[in-house]
Design a binder for these strands. Structure first.
Lengths: 344, 344
DNA sequence: CGAGGGGATGTAACCGTTTACATAGACGGT
DNA sequence: ACCGTCTATGTAAACGGTTACATCCCCTCG
């Protein structure tokens, strides 16, 4: 059963296709009786405009393309939730894709999406904005998430101040008396991970501590477990700061295995403040980032560009909030700050 | 800068648009020198076919629509990951939407998506398949996820045997000596939640226990915390079975607050086996469901239908696996089963 | 009473592909 | 030499909307 076209509606309502189109796009002046007649007929025929035809004629797709490096875990879940909130508020569709962390594949996906979206929201911590945008020469508007290379470039960028967040966490660990603070790094080629590492080092240096202990991870819990085990075998740290919450959670598991108490023997901190961070035991100290909110704002930026107001500097850098929970301190004097973070 | 069209390519390669189209669709017989010339030109011009025009002419969109009731938490994160694995393996696009749990809105979204996808994957625990499919009369092929109403209906359905899973968990709690087993229910109008409740009751009845304690939740951690607190105020249970893992995790938090030991004082179990379930303390006993795998299989089913092989009964019911972890037992004799669940 | 104006609607070109059908060579067989 | 086949390519008609422009009608005003 071929579905109804605008011509079917026009015929049944005894008007031209132009009028039907006008009614459906709420535009121009159409007489009231005509409007309701057309709407009634359209409804009866269960008419839905053909998206392809519409985009062909109007050069709009009402769709935002989203490209993420991965979809694993709560970080991306939250991000997508924020983005979806935006798209559905604006009546836009959301075309989702994943680049598997490979810049090559990211470029390929961008090309494939290009003709199907009005704008793209891209998070690619492995390539800078220039590289990506060359993958789609002057095509679709591009908004970047956390691709530090893009800041100051020619695409709006929404980024997290990874350096500041990592610095704050490390400083907090130092302040609370930790002296052998180890770091579990993220993927080596990940710009954000690199920034967090820099922040960690800078904080140690600022405190006059030069004892770095660094283990390599890849942002997964599994790697957090492995990295923590390794750290425990070598020089025993009295604090472990993982470059993201998932690894910190893996870390907690490894410490439990080793029968070390947290924070008694070893303090632990993560980064991101994913929802589950407050539910692990002990609850995780972390650098809190309003993940869903970032997604939402970046999406709003896309919309602003599409709707024409493409001037203005839409760049925004989010400074993580230090969220102190039980994994780093038993000291109750910090609790108020912890509570402030329960804002959801 | 208007992007290149097939006509630009045809002109530059000195062939007709038909030939360009044939080359790009790998179809028919085109002479080798022509093929490479066209590809070279297309590449130089950075040509990407216009998705709308293509779908208009070919009646394919190479896109699968996915409608989920929510995007919160690891359950959906995993599901999307599985689905994405399928779409990218088949070179398809993924159009994602959320129905906010409202059947009305679900129907509206379905209509909006209809003309932009080749098939739809819908999870709507609030409405049965018939209701949904009437929302898109004979339009796009529909594959259902967990909409029990659809089983045996005219749409392929991938479902979890919620009753069996809940029965197994409850039976396990009984077997390990628990006598006052409380249940934290999911949303009242959620079919899956209702089935899990039925399973709980059936298991109690089968064991000759008639002491039901039921608290209402809504699948969020917050509601798990609240429900557990309430249960602790009324008749103190020696086990709490939450209808999903998120609520079970909330439950653990409430028990910690109340300074009750798990599993010493109260055993806790959840449902779904989301990735984080094994990382909470104590690790969560749960009904394990291969979430990503279900997403992937359902997606494959969509693809099979699109590609023509739409016969065959693609229905599939997944029976959850009992995953026993520390939250329900200190008894190490169960450990082998627990380890088996670490399959990933 | 005619001209002018403005509101409602129709006409038809156009958007960029795909694809059925037509055509033009080349080649082999008789 | 002619005809049929086959291969490679071109021609042009859809596909289903949007929208600039044309048209028609009715009303108002000088």
């Amino acid at each position: 059963m071929r579905s109804a076209t605008i011509r079917d509606v026009a015929r049944a309502a005894k008007v031209s296709t132009a009028t039907v189109s006008r009614v459906l796009n709420r535009s121009e002046t159409v007489a009231e009786p005509t409007v309701s007649r057309v709407l009634k007929v359209a409804n009866e025929l269960d008419y839905v405009p053909h998206g392809g035809a519409r985009s062909l004629a109007s050069k709009r797709t009402d769709t935002i393309g989203v490209l993420l490096p991965d979809l694993h875990g709560e970080f991306f879940s939250e991000l997508i939730r924020g983005i979806d909130a935006g798209t559905s508020a604006h009546g836009l569709h959301l075309l989702l894709s994943r680049s598997h962390g490979d810049p090559q594949e990211a470029a390929a996906v961008l090309r494939a999406m290009r003709s199907r979206v009005d704008a793209m929201l891209v998070m690619s911590p492995y390539a800078d904005g220039e590289e990506l945008s060359s993958a789609l020469k002057g095509g679709v508007p591009l908004v970047l998430l956390n691709s530090s290379g893009g800041v100051g470039g020619r695409h709006p960028t929404f980024a997290i101040d990874n350096h500041a967040g990592a610095f704050a966490i490390t400083a907090h660990l130092i302040e609370t008396g930790r002296r052998r603070i180890a770091f579990i790094a993220g993927p080596a080629d990940n710009i954000e991970a690199a920034e967090r590492l820099r922040g960690y080092r800078a904080a140690l240096a600022a405190a006059g501590q030069s004892v770095e202990q660094i283990a390599q991870g890849d942002f997964t819990e599994q790697s957090g477990v492995a990295a923590a085990r390794q750290l425990l075998r070598t020089a025993r740290p009295d604090a472990i700061f993982a470059a993201n919450d998932m690894m910190a959670i893996g870390c907690l598991q490894a410490l439990r295995e080793a029968e070390l108490r947290v924070p008694g023997n070893v303090a632990v901190a993560g980064f991101d403040d994913i929802p589950v961070a407050r539910f692990v035991e002990p609850a995780l100290t972390t650098a809190g980032v309003p993940i869903a909110e970032i997604g939402r704002q970046a999406l709003e930026c896309c919309v602003a560009i599409i709707r024409g107001a493409d001037a203005g500097d839409h760049n925004r850098i989010f400074t993580p909030q230090l969220v102190i929970r039980a994994s780093s301190t038993d000291n109750s004097e910090h609790r108020p700050q912890s509570l402030a973070s329960e804002r959801i």
